[in-house]
Every structure is written in C-alpha cells, then in structure tokens.
Design a protein around this nucleic acid. Sequence first.
RNA 1: GUCCCCAUCGUCUAGCCUGGUCUAGGACAAGAGCUUUUCAAGCUCUCGACACCGGUUCAAAUCCGGUUGGGGACGCCA
Length: 437
Amino acid sequence: MRVRFAPSPTGYLHIGGARTALFNWLYARAKEGEFILRIEDTDKARSQKEYLDEILDSLRWLGFNWDEIYYQGQRFAIYREQAEKLLQAGMAYLEKSKIKEQKSKMEAIIFKVEPQKIKVNDLIRGEIEFEAETIKDQVLIKSDGTPTYNFACVVDDALLNITQVIRGDDHLSNTPKQVLLYQALGFKVPEFAHLPLILGAEGGRLSKRTGATAISDYRQSGYLPEALVNYLLLLSWSPGENREIIDIDEAIKLFDIKNVNKTAATFNLDKLNWINNQYLKVTDPQKLTDELIPRLMEKKYIKKDSMDRDYLVSLVKLFQGRLSTLNDFLDWADFFFLDEINLDPVAQKKYLSEDLSEEFKLFIARLEALDKFDTLTIEQAFRDLVKELNMESKKLIHPIRVALTGKTIGPGLFEVIYYLGKERTKERLTRWVRRQK
RNA sequence: GUCCCCAUCGUCUAGCCUGGUCUAGGACAAGAGCUUUUCAAGCUCUCGACACCGGUUCAAAUCCGGUUGGGGACGCCA
C-alpha cells in the first residue's frame, strides 16, 4: 500500500490540502503502508521556495510524517521518455506551439483520445462512467518542454508504485483522462478515492473571505495541531458512537476510507474553536506556557530576562479552561502584564458609574492589614467587609473586577487579586479612587 | 453550454449498503435557566432536518426514476 500527497508550491497549504494530506496519511498508517510526498513544481514561474517551506513546515506541525519525498522538477527526463514512447507507438502526435509569444521552436507532444467508454471505480463513490468523446486530446509535454499536470501525475503515480490515489473531488474529472494515459503507457491503474470538497460559509470554494486561510495562519492564531486534525477528521468522516473528540491513534484504528462521506462539508470556525478549547483544557499548562512565551514577548508583555516562569504557568492555568485559541490569552490576561489596563468602556459604564470610593478605600485597608495573602484569606476579608457594609457581594465584586482588569469577564476575582499581588491591586484601586474625586 | 458529483436540523454528522427497532440520535451555534462572583467555562432544558414528485413494497430517511437545488471540471495552471 502506497499513497501520496502531491502539493504544488504555488501557494500555502490550506485547509483542503491539509485534509487531503490527513486522509492519505491516515490511510497509510491504518494499513501500515507508505505515505509519500510529491512536490508538483513543474510550473517554474509560479513555484516558490517560500511556499514549499511553508507546506513542509505545516505538514510536520500537523504530524503527517512522510516516508519518501520527490520533486517533479527533477524528473523532467522521465516524463519526456514516457511521452516519446507514446509518440513512437502512434498514440501521440506533435503540434506547434499555439502560444503566440512562445520563442521556442519545440513542439508539444499531444495524446490522441480515442472514442470509448471509461469506467472509474472510486473507493468512495463507486463506479463512474465517462464518455471519451467529451474529452479533448491531451497535451503531455508542453512546447517549453515541461510536462502537464495530468501526464506527470500519471507517470509518477505509476513509477512510484502508488496503489491508491486519494485526492480532492475537484480531480474527479481528471480521472478519466488519467486512466487513458495509464492504459496507453501499459501501467496498472491504481485505485481512486475522491474526497468531498470543503466549502466556505457561503458555499463554493474556501477563500480568505469565507474563512479559509493557510494552515500556518491557524498555527499562528493559536490552534493546537491535534485540535485542527481532530476537526478535519470530523469533516466528512465520523468515528461513530457520537464521538467528537478523538485522538489520532484511535482514528488510525477506526479509519476506513469506505466510510468517508460523499457530501461536501462546510468549514465552521465555531466548531473548530470549540474543539480547540476542548484540547486546550487538557493540555499540560507547561506546554501551553512554552507556546505562549514567544507570543507574550512579541506583544512586549514579558521580557526574556525578567520572566518568572512559575508565575506565568499559574496565569495560564487560570485561563486555560476558557480559551478558544492561545491568542485569547493575550487579550484576556493582558491586565497582568500592563501597567495601564485597557478599560472596556461598556464595562466601565455598567459597573463604575457609581462612586464607590469609600468602599474601595475600606477594601484597600483590609488588604493592607492582611499578613497572609492567598485566595482564601482575600475572599474572607472581602466577605467580612461586605457583611459589615450590609452590601450584596456582587455589588462590589463587579466594580472591583473592572477596576482591576478593565473587563467584566475573567477568572474568579479573588484569584485575580492573588495573582495581581497586593501592591498592584492596591495601586489600581487607589488610582480609581483618585479618579472619582 | 457540455460532462461529472452530491442532497438528513443554520453547520458538522449518526442512521442508508443488509427497508420495519426513527414520533430520526449526537455535536457546534442559537435561545432559556442554574451556578450564595462575572462568563467566553460547567450543568439542565428548548428550538431545529429526512429538498420535491412519482414508483417498488404490507412497510421507505433507507431501494428505483425524474425534477429542483448545490458543488466541481472543461488550460501548452496544478
């Protein structure tokens, strides 16, 4: 069993490509076969090193390790040799370039398509029949000497002994053309499996506007690779038993290409966010901290030399259960790193319109008097004060939270105070009292 | 225009192959409530679908045909 993923370095690895790579990789791992990477860089003008690097990097990040890698750009002689075979057999002919600007005097090699019925047996869709009359003669080698996609693809899949071609639905109509080429070259036709496409929110192809961006963008936003893979898995495949969260090892055991859906799926960021949250919750905070440190440094929230790692880990634990992405932490925990907090105007209006300077002052005094400064002690001091003032605790909790964090949302107030520390808490509350005057 | 694919809640899906166990199950989202402190976490509940028409059958989400709708492909791009 040998499968392949064949990206073209003319763009970044996107959601659709990643899903194709995933299903190929899964197929290989489930059947203990080989997963081969083939870089389709025949279009020299459009292929870029930057894209290649991004694709390989993203694949590694997702965990799709490959067993072999090939570059079509290094195999032009092979394609030409195979094309010559067809030429000599009379199954192909030469034609002058139709491109006006073409300076080369070379001629293109074109495959003659004879009328016939072509049957394709798809692992997911069953038997599909095409009429060769609806297919034009196919260019094999362009007049600039480079092979066309369909030709290079067939030659490589055959010569690299690919047994199952698993690819996107958009290649379905290429399949009869390719079958003809396998037969003409005397190669064994592999099995095909065409995966349903992933559509954007408005139907149609995924684009930047409809939410599809490069895998590296998801990485940068703070999605975990396991979560992204889990989400991709759920798009047109289901592990059954109403399971949503499934790790890759279990998916390998349960995966069967025959159970892949035929229906195109719509990419849904909300569900990805939910899955990412599920993974974020159970990920080792140390690991999350490692991921967060460079992001915090970039935001200038921390400096490398003055960083207290244990403190950071504690903060991460505080927010861990609520994050959709790692970057959420940057927004929600900002007040721990900033001297001047970002005060949400809506929150201010809602909870800080009333003058609570007396209550704030009293609370500051209570904090001042504490020998021990831990969550429980702080809470006790607060509860006592509220009781004495004969106030509802939430009437004071919310204003204090906003004064300290600038937000109406966040972890429990007493934990926030504890991690903010006595000095910073006092300072922020005092600042607010002064503002009242 | 031609060819091809697809069709269950707004979205992802289970069920379909091997018709009855389906007054169609789960998840995300949305709405409501609970959580002597917020929620973007947790718990509970609510809303919500077999595209349509015909056929086969005692019986159809499940099988067959058509219609409609959606998607893809028709390049000397990949």
